[in-house]
Amino acid sequence: MTPLDSPLPPAWENAGFLIGFVLSLLILSFVIRDSWLARAGQYLLVGVTLAYTVVLVWSNVLWPRLLSPLLANPLPITDNRGPLTPALWNGWLPLVVGLLLWAAGIDYLRGRRGQQQSWLRHLAAFPLALLVGVGLGAGIAGALQGTFLPQFRRATEVGQLLDAPPPLLLAALLTLVITGGALLHLQLGAASGDDSRFPAALRPFLAGWAWLGERALWLTAGVIFARLFAARSTLLIARLDALFFSQQINDFWRWLMTFWQGG
């Protein structure tokens, strides 16, 4: 017995597969026409997903990481580290702030949006601002350190590639030219035909460069579409493969035939 072994008996797992089979057919019936069957499948999917998420958040986050430690050690002053103990920072503060946000959200959903904001929502604005601010700060800092700077450094390495093999140098130069062309097309106004801000001698050159950037953008869109098509067709094939060729469905058909023949 390992942690990965399912506690469910095999019959239950087969039942789950059959329920999934039926729900898949319900949702796929949308291809024929929109009907209450297709709607029922979609609503069941959304509802079950939401319910599962609620259970998961309770069993994986709220209880083991918040409520259970608090119940085991509820007093903020329980150790020798002073009043700011983990019970305060990791327990009571998140609990109070969470309850505040929850209450303010319910107050908002009760439909009093047009009225003057209640004190509850004013109070909840502070932790909400903190959440948004921290998220934005982390996102911007991460984008700088994880995307912008490494990509910029990589782009500027073109000058150091002169000793590199010709294919690598060609690819790097092509990247530089296409990137410049796409930026020119998108940002500098060449795409709209308004190149009057540039010197007349430069205009044909810039127009040609922007033309190249425009074609590169279209090519990129085509590549992304092609890969996305491959991803989605794989999903469809996998679903059809599971529905019509899997061992479970074969067992089900065999059982159904046996049942039909009275055996």
């Binding site: 990509q151 990589r154 590549v223 992304i224 890969r227 996305l228 491959a230 991803a231 794989t234």
Partner: peptide, 15 residues
Amino acid sequence: AGVDPVIRPYVDSGQ
């Protein structure tokens, strides 16, 4: 597969 073109620059940069 649909993600591949978007994250390919991170492969080229060594990340």
